[in-house]
Simulated scan of single mutants.
Amino acid sequence: MQALQFAHTGDLAALQLVEVAQPTPSADEVLVQVRAAGLNPSDVKNVLGRFPYTTLPRIPGRDFAGVVVDGPSTLLGTSVWGTGKGLGFNCNGSHAAYLTLPAKGVARLPEQLSFSQAAALGVPYTTAWDALQRCQVAQGTRLLIIGAAGAVGSAAIALGKALGADVLAAVRKPEQVLRLRDSGTPTLLLEQTDQLATQVQAHFPGGADVIFDTTGFWLPAVVPALADFGRIAIIAAPVDGHVHLPALALYRRGGVVVGVNSLLYDTVQCARMLEAFGQFFAQGRLPLPSGLREVPLSEGLSSYAEVNTGSQDKIVFIPNH
């Protein structure tokens, strides 16, 4: 079968398009014919060597959608989607024509989603879902999402609204503000850190119940914008991993900081997440993904390079079978 594979890390030139044997599932696994596979920044970082626990040689890729062609009879012929820790790191991932993984590590694909749409959702949506669930976002929660124009931020907006939260976005570029406001999401323009609390308080008197910082740069500034007993979720940090946290202001508010890391969840745990929010598509509570760029897997090397240089396109690989 055709696959992308790397045998060493540190340079995207290590990634090659290769022909490898089709995998064979074990007794507790399924063989999925991959119909679409998402490309995430973490896949690129993996090839570059940012994850020291990756074993080599390795086929990268975490997100996928496809059809079960071997495994338990209850799943044969079923359209499924999935993501999770391990895929592309210590077992072969989704940037290939076929993929094996635990039978409980796949979720049935909502009929409203195409293969490409489903493959584009895995990492960003499970990351956002984990953040919102662990921060107890529910009907009426005053939710601020910083970095709302990115993939995880956009997922958090959609999921927050589906859960009934009062969503406020915050972005750095005026054109992003206009786009989000046009789509019906109140949005702040991020400028000076010392102005953020005032901006948030003007929209949420008393502060935001939950603040989700997807950028890693605003943690010190968001503490004054937090409501009493509020929660702050973070998924990134400065390059050196350190930040000055105004701990006195945080504990006086009874605040909590929640670290969110999608690589803590294996495919089985992620499948349960996909099932949980996947029902929202059937209920019309989540918008269908749009603006995806489908790329043949055979052209995957250039796509990795694009993402590495900052492309914001949501690229979905389509394997040849």
Rank of each mutant, 00 (worst) to 15 (best):
D266F: 09
W218R: 00
T214D: 10
R142P: 08
M273K: 15
A148C: 05
G184L: 11
Y265Q: 01
L274E: 01
P41H: 01
A36W: 10
A170E: 05
V307M: 09
G49S: 03
Q269I: 15
R231D: 13
L189K: 04
D182K: 01
N46F: 14
L15T: 03
V260D: 08
L101Q: 06
D130W: 00
S290A: 15
A7V: 08
L31Y: 06
V239M: 13
I232K: 08
R252C: 12
A165L: 06
V123D: 00
L301K: 15
V260R: 04
G71K: 12
V67F: 06
P224V: 09
D228R: 10
G291T: 05
A27F: 03
I232M: 07
D166M: 14
Q2W: 11
Q136C: 13
T214N: 07
K104W: 12
W81R: 06
P23K: 04
V239E: 13
P174I: 02
T141V: 03
R293V: 10
E275Y: 05
T187G: 00
K85G: 10
D266I: 12
N261H: 00
E306A: 13
G216Q: 07
A247L: 14
S311N: 01
T193I: 10
L101W: 04
L288D: 14
V171F: 05
A162C: 12
A202I: 12
D130P: 02
E275K: 07
R108N: 14
L99P: 14
L292M: 03
A128H: 09
